[in-house]
Nucleic acid binder design. Structure first.
Lengths: 207, 207
DNA sequence: GTGTAACTTGAACGGCAGTTCAGTTTTTCG
DNA sequence: CGAAAAACTGAACTGCCGTTCAAGTTACAC
């Protein structure tokens, strides 16, 4: 009796990846088990072997996706080799292009928002990612403050909350192609506010 | 031949209202035509008489909802009888309680976000509401600046963008019940930043 | 009144897609 | 090697739900 067969985990992960791809591409309510199965190179029955119900599959897919995203992005402390300012500038640029891989992440992010609003079981997933992001940014701010790049009296956690709110708040408008808030304007707005708060030049944050 | 029969418009509106209620309650992908019909006191065939397809019904329902919301909230210029400061304080309080009627509005708002991300035809609906909101807040700021309540060198539109980003950015976290960002914290954060920007006391904005 | 157009309905069709199940292949381990 | 468990499949079942349609009802115009 295999305690946990290795093949099982691989297949399971493949199914989850396929589900994530389809969620990002078509929207969560358009995801069909048959499609997930095909994309994962499996049968629909196999999908049900791992996930008893469609709802469970979708929930697990979102969890899987965001746990991995959190690991990838915030698994290790921010890079302040060069400077905290450039690190922060990079962080803004990583979050607000909305083209390429970021678009997929944003779509999944909004998908999680809506899902979590309805399903309390999903809220901790979102909250955990926010917490990780918050700590990561706070560490960046703290490093910059200690290095003398930023004002020394800043509250790193408060700045992190501000930064996240600005990124989400402007980012969603940019996603909606609001003509008054395209990506450039969004970045400028975020950079401007953070620069004032940190006592650095806004141009250095705009990237 | 009645050019536009009155009964038709009433029925149509009733169906849209019913659809909005169900979207808010269950989520857009859980909305069934039969349920909409029942709630509107109609038959499924009648729903199809007004909306040829389910997709169209849902899209029209969202449009209907947000056109009305925009009219109700921002149809007339902000009330600055008392003071612009109290008007702004009220605006924050109207947006960030997340209990009672506001919860429904927030849910619909997130629902629109996700839908509009996928359906380009819906994006102008969101953009228009943002534009109205923006103008409305800008008018409030401008009034306050002219009355000498706020700093005279403020950029009303920029402040409006900032305010909206902060409200959306903190609001969504509050909706997700992020323990680090409940409604009180969110309000305090928004009030704090705007107060600094406007040169007023934060306590006056927190309500 | 009476005809016409709009409004409304009950009932059935049709198909999609989640789920189940009985059976086959593969893997694991003593 | 051999048996048992896990991994996996094809195919059918089933229920839901969007959609259609032909017929009934109301309201308005002349």
């Amino acid at each position: 009796m295999a305690a946990v067969a290795p093949a099982a985990e691989i297949t399971r992960a493949r199914i989850l990846e396929a589900a994530c791809d389809l969620i990002a591409a078509d929207g969560i309510d358009e995801v069909r088990i048959a499609r997930v199965a095909t994309r994962a190179g499996a049968s629909t029955a196999l999908v049900h072997h791992y996930f008893s119900t469609r709802e469970e599959l979708l929930e697990q897919a979102l969890i899987h996706s965001f746990e991995r995203a959190g690991e990838d992005r915030f698994g290790e402390p921010p890079d302040v080799e060069q400077s905290a300012t450039s690190g922060l500038s990079q962080a803004i640029a990583d979050c607000l292009p909305l083209a390429g891989p970021q678009e997929r992440e944003w779509v999944l992010w909004v998908e999680l928002w809506l899902r979590a609003v309805r399903d309390p079981g999903l809220r901790p997933v979102a909250a955990r990612l926010y917490e990780r992001y918050r700590k990561w940014i706070a560490a960046l701010i703290r490093a910059g403050a200690e290095a003398g790049e930023f004002r020394s009296d800043v509250d790193p956690e408060a700045i992190a909350d501000l930064a996240m709110a600005l990124l989400d708040g402007t980012g969603i408008r940019a996603m909606l192609e609001d003509p008054a808030m395209d990506v450039q304007v969004a970045r400028a707005l975020v950079a401007e506010r953070l620069a004032v708060e940190l006592g650095v030049d806004a141009a250095a944050l705009r990237g």
